[in-house]
């Protein structure tokens, strides 16, 4: 069985028994997966709704967690909820698209590709960056939001967004250089 499924299912089973620590880990993990899932499916004009959809999905997971049947795959269950939320979002906003009949694999597929390893490297590097810059880099470089969008959603000026990103990238460069030096 796929390792992501095994891990998440264990966390979910513990959460159903009331283990708050597992639940926290699970929700944080899912928030990340869901964010990618929604971002990939929203048009540029609606990318900003991804966070709302993530939160709505987590909220639904919470209030309707009794509907997870423990003998079935957890990822398929979560995917069904995420997909419902996405379609509901399209319907509410009268967006005429057809959601491809993707299956649960899509929600977690990134983890099985080399891209996942790359992303982990990137994330590890980002961990070394001060939190403020990290978030800015994440939004602009990884999610592809524009400087203006990020400035608006964080309440910073465009100039300070640019400065923050610049500082972060410098920190990463320093870190990479340090690592290269270590290798020598």
């Amino acid at each position: 069985m796929n390792p992501v499924e095994t891990r998440l299912k264990e966390l979910m089973l513990a959460s159903l028994d009331g283990d708050a620590r597992s639940y926290g880990i699970l929700l944080n993990d899912l928030a990340r997966h869901l964010r990618f899932y929604f971002l990939r499916r929203l048009s540029d004009a609606h990318k900003g709704d991804a966070d709302d959809l993530v939160q709505e999905t987590l909220m639904s997971l919470h209030t309707r967690r009794a509907t997870y049947e423990t003998d079935r795959p957890f990822t398929a269950w979560l995917h069904a909820i995420a997909r419902y939320k996405l379609i509901d979002h399209f319907r509410r906003n009268r967006i005429r698209v057809t959601v491809p009949l993707d299956d649960a694999e899509d929600l977690f597929a990134v983890d099985q590709s080399d891209a996942a390893a790359d992303r982990m490297d990137v994330e590890r590097l980002l961990q070394s960056v001060p939190e403020k810059s990290r978030d800015l880099i994440y939004r602009t470089k990884i999610e592809g939001q524009s400087i203006a969008e990020v400035a608006q959603s964080t309440g910073l000026s465009e100039a300070s967004v640019k400065v923050g990103i610049h500082r972060g990238i410098k920190a990463i460069a320093a870190k990479l250089k340090g690592r290269a030096d270590d290798d020598r």
């Binding site: 159903l16 639940y23 926290g24 944080n28 966070d51 987590l58 909220m59 967690r65 009794a66």
Partner: peptide
């Protein structure tokens, strides 16, 4: 509300769920 705040709230509210919860609701 940020996603982190939401997660903190939901984690704080967590209670064990009976496996028969759906059955009983019906």
């Amino acid at each position: 509300m940020t996603t982190d705040d939401l997660i903190a709230r939901l984690t704080g509210e967590l209670k064990p769920v009976s496996r028969l919860a759906v059955f009983w609701r019906v």
